[in-house]
Design a protein around this nucleic acid. Structure first.
Lengths: 127, 127
DNA sequence: CCGGGTACCTACCAAATGGTGCGTACTTGA
DNA sequence: TCAAGTACGCACCATTTGGTAGGTACCCGG
């Protein structure tokens, strides 16, 4: 028996709900595609969760997985058309998040893992 | 130490995430205000959950609770300005849900609890 | 040969989420 | 007097979600 929804929002939340799915989708929408890159952009998620969510999004037809079958492994994920149709939702969430952060004086700690700005091996990092 | 977010979407989802919060907010946005009415519109939620979520949304400043202090009890909830600022998010979720339902041939089982169409006491209901 | 990086998987455990059922207090209707 | 309806609160339990810590397999640099 397929799940019964009583409101379109219920259906939407059932598919893209949860703490991480929208964040993953938003990153993919912004052009982050590789698994490792997603990980670095989301320091709060565990590898297990990331993989699990990616698999679910794949199963729901929102993201497609592309394994280059090279070694070292290289896999990237991108939005399908169905996933891309979520753009308005993701954008709205993003925009609201920005506004809310300002209103509540919350800072966003961007983990900008850009190769050009990342610390070199020689750079001492406090630990 | 306040929670650290690494992306505005993370922040947004942390506040309005979960299975029920967006649905409640969407209903309030549409003009359903009384507690009992919300319940009837969301047959899948238990009373406990509904109250719990409403309390959380209240604490986050998204909804305001108004107790008429009459007997029998009459309480209604409405969006605050902060809650109303979520309109684009809720609308996007709603619209996507509608489209997704069509694409996946999922039907939405609206629990239209309208007094004019609701069964009268005399109406025998199979059980 | 050893560590690090890639992209995972598996088992085990803790916390959050959500459901059931019962109780409150008060009124109206049968 | 008793059930029903309003809007909850609370205790207990099951399910779900998520975290931690390991391991796989392969390559490259030192």
């Amino acid at each position: 028996m397929p799940k019964q929804y009583h409101c379109p929002v219920e259906l939407a939340v059932d598919i893209i709900g949860g703490a991480w799915r929208p964040v993953i989708l938003a990153h993919l929408k912004e052009g982050v595609h590789r698994y490792g890159e997603l990980r670095r952009r989301m320091p709060g998620i565990s590898e297990k969760m990331l993989i699990q969510r990616l698999r679910e999004l794949e199963a729901e037809g929102l993201v497609a997985r592309h394994d280059h079958k090279t070694v070292p492994p290289r896999v990237d994920y991108h939005l399908t058309d169905e996933g891309a149709s979520l753009a308005p939702v993701l954008q709205a969430l993003y925009d609201w998040g920005v506004g809310r952060a300002e209103r509540t004086k919350t800072t966003i700690d961007w983990p900008v893992t850009d190769r050009r700005t990342a610390p070199k091996e020689g750079t001492p990092v406090a630990e």
